[in-house]
Amino acid sequence: MRSPKPDLRGELREHPFLRGMDPGFLQAIEGATQERSFGTGDPLIREGEAAKEMLLVQQGKIGLELVAPDRPRLSLLTVGPGEIVGWSWLIPPHIWLSDGRALKPTRVLAIDGASLRAVLEDRPKDAYQFMLRLVPVISRRLQIARIQVMDIHGV
């Protein structure tokens, strides 16, 4: 028996990043949202490629990785259910700054970046609320990166 298709509308409204946002805003982005699934090891995003979507993680785990010439691929952060991947869709030139790879079977809600930007431009109050959610994510990840740079477990 096939399982029923997940209720994307409900999942969008209940994702911790969007929970409590104005119903009109959520309705405006529903049509721009798709579900995507990835197997272990599958790439979700790739550094240098166009950042066309905002990803809301529903299940699984995503490793955000950096690749540099003559260095092994480095995993710097894992992101799990309830978290988001990426803000490059918002910031010109809309290019991903890291790779993202599924570390276990993963399901995300992908919101089309161009549509989301258009909705945010049309709805400044909602855009402000959206930013009040996005900026703390960026701030936390910056703080994590600072602590990683400090190498606090080193001697």
């Binding site: 691929r73 710097l76 994590i144 990683q148």
Partner: peptide, 23 residues
Amino acid sequence: VTVDRAGVDWYGDVGIVSQRIPD
């Protein structure tokens, strides 16, 4: 378990340990 950084052979969590507290 979480580690500050890892190679691609690590499928566990990467980040800092205080990130695990909300979970």
